[in-house]
Write a protein that binds this DNA or RNA. Structure first.
Lengths: 234, 234
DNA sequence: GCGCAAAAAATCGTATACAATTTGACCACT
DNA sequence: AGTGGTCAAATTGTATACGATTTTTTGCGC
């Protein structure tokens, strides 16, 4: 029963932050289905820590919008409503063009190379098959936007984008149709090209359309989503 | 002892959220000076709760950027560096025009009236003297921006603006020179007028200049601010 | 067999207890 | 007097304990 054989016999001091990051990765990668209950005792048992640390991690995740905590009932992996999803993408449309311009200001040749490198990795993943590859693809797609944010040198914007990308990943995993990401990759490429050419207006234009396309590919009909599924126990 | 009859004698169930809000108000109003240590035991004693709840509140505030938590040392009221301050205002310049346009989309006559009402209250406070009035003035000035955010109907933007306004208030309290706010009030008024006239371009323009003016009024020389003072035990 | 009430179990909310780390003081020593 | 080191006090980090609330189960009457 205590077969924790894999990483090493005993765990090596897992702190609140690691717990939070691990759970977040699991949520964003959709290894944890939306609506799943995250019992404090269960999670604590998995990480071999007390409920105290688990609670702290769950509260932080609640602040990021990745889990919902209901008083006296527990924490659940967030199940973003279509309305929430729209708000998330509306916010991205609002701030990402600005981030793009700000990032471009501070961008040098090495930064552009990093972006190209990321795109290559993204393309490589796209070619592969299987759920693992698809998860990595979604993740890489988000990393492109995060890298732009990091290039602004603005920690506040970076944190906002962290949250937006994480929640977007959750939404895409929930409502996404699938074939879309290929388009997304090409659009990332076009955006970088526009930046390289110094045509920021075009880059922003492309960025907005890119976000539009991501959102347009979602199938946010309620049946797939809201209460029914959760009511049936998963 | 169980006479919960009157809500005054004993405390009336102070939850984590109330603690967080109370501390935040105190920070934003600058009743708690930046750099002040927030000892878990002391705060807990003040609210008559255990350290558990205080810790939760402090962690949440740390996430909002209003307190810094240093491992094994404790929580301190944030002391935003000039660099942080610039990033905060850069972020506001980036998103507030968008919020303005988004809010204008959903705005009806009643919304405009609410804005006007807020401005009147702001003007009334401006006329008064004393530190209390000045605090209320800073708060009211922030409320204007928050009300615009709430009018977008977008909870994500609203949360972002909550954080930005709170941190801005802290920065203004720290580095602000004083006489400025009068200008700010007039600028708020002009923005509303532009919205009423349907001239959104002008409103956005005014908004950006307004944020510029707020930032320009700050005196962010390091001596007043960063490490020295904190190093000297305050 | 079905529905409902009451008890039992499970889970969360909060407080307290104990371990680990930091901070400050005191004292010996150069 | 100044410096370094060790110990004590205070503070945070984490776990555990206990009460409150919710959920499930049980048992009874119909």
């Amino acid at each position: 029963m205590k077969t924790a054989a894999v990483p090493s016999d005993d765990q090596i001091d897992i702190s609140t932050q690691s717990i939070r990051d691990t759970i977040r990765d699991a949520i964003v990668d959709r290894r944890l289905a939306p609506g799943t209950k995250l019992s404090e005792a269960d999670v604590g048992a998995l990480f071999n820590v007390s409920r105290t640390l688990v609670r702290a991690a769950l509260q932080a995740l609640a602040y990021e919008g990745l889990v919902n905590v209901e008083k006296n009932r527990g924490a659940f992996v967030a199940y973003p409503s279509p309305e929430e999803a729209r708000q998330i993408f509306a916010t991205r449309r609002l701030i990402e063009p600005g981030i793009l311009r700000e990032a471009a200001k501070h961008m040098g040749p090495s930064h552009l190379q990093h972006l190209r490198q990321l795109l290559m990795e993204e393309g490589r993943l796209m070619a592969e098959r299987g759920q693992t590859a698809r998860r990595a693809e979604i993740k890489a797609s988000g990393d492109f936007h995060l890298m732009l944010a990091s290039m602004t040198g603005n920690a506040v914007m970076q944190r906002f984008m962290d949250e937006l990308v994480a929640r977007s990943s959750l939404v895409i995993a929930l409502y996404g149709q699938s074939a879309i990401s290929s388009c997304g990759h090409q659009e990332h490429d076009d955006i970088v090209t526009a930046i390289e050419n110094g045509d920021l207006d075009r880059a922003c234009h492309l960025m907005i359309h890119h976000i539009d396309h991501i959102e347009a590919d979602l199938d946010m009909r309620e049946n797939k989503g809201s209460d029914l599924r959760e009511a049936f126990g998963l």
